[in-house]
Amino acid sequence: MTILRRLVHGVAPRVLWMLVGLLALLLVAPAVLDTYGLSVLILILYFAYVGQAWNIMMGFAGQLSLGHALYAGLGGYVAAGLFTHYGIGPWAGAFAAAAAAALAGAIVGYLGFRFSLAGVYFALLTIAFGEFTRIAFDHLDWFGASGGLFLKVDVAPNPFDLRGGPLLFYYVILALAAGAFLLCRLLLESRLGRYWLAIREDAEAAQAVGVPVLRYKMLAITVSAALTSLAGVWNAFYYNNLFPETAFGMSRSIEITLAPIIGGLGTLFGPVVGAVVLTGLGEVFTSVGDTLGIPGIKQIFYGIALLVIVMYRPAGVWPWLAARFGATERRQ
């Protein structure tokens, strides 16, 4: 009850109803969407979810990670490995995945924060960890090494093993995205979240008013890593294959950061709006590219579009939209 009260505290009824309406729409959407429509919606929710997880670190606590593929990749590999070798389902595997990612986050965080690596230097550290984990996985036979790890697909649909069609994955990622949204709202409206914001704004001033800065930064990276790992688990079971090249690759890390940057760092709706914009643009440019028959045109358009958005809406699309429609959430 208190949790529920805290969730809705200070939220305009109009916004609440809009959110409930949106959730209801998303719940019934598969009934009206075709396979293509559903796959696009799945992508949007996936990016909204990982974006939300990454935003905890960058948007809330102000720590730039450009190596979040590390946590998604670890999550995917741990759950897929347990399932492939021991038949342990991903619902249980998710806990192991989250624990592994949280541990990895704690190691990266401790090295970076304890020794006061700030800004780009910390970002370089996160990239380094992602990259050498990728190289390590190229040689770990238990995880299929560079040849890849493949999940069994010729089995009967079983939600408990996350074996099934797009519909199953749609509802799982919807639950994750909605859950992460609510969790982030709760975190922000608590001492923990306020301390993160204070650290983001000025760590020295935060410490002077009693914030144990190292501990709260460590919390940010472990929570963010654990949440990101669940996206990795989902991803592994959705695509049924894992390669170190893609799972831990730099482009995966960058991809994770895009929705919150485009949508609005440090806001709850930013990652969601950013995911809609990015996926929408991606799909449009793919079809344009297909129509024109020019390979690679999608990437060029996509890059230009991102450039334009970042140039003209540096604070993100959501704060601008919110101001236009008179909503009140500004960058927290």
């Binding site: 306020r194 914001l197 000025d202 020295e204 001033a205």
Partner: peptide, 15 residues
């Protein structure tokens, strides 16, 4: 060293 992007009230609330 104010927490610049936070409101005046939120600054003091952190304390």
């Amino acid at each position: 060293k104010p927490f610049k992007a936070l409101s005046v009230l939120e600054n003091v609330t952190v304390g």
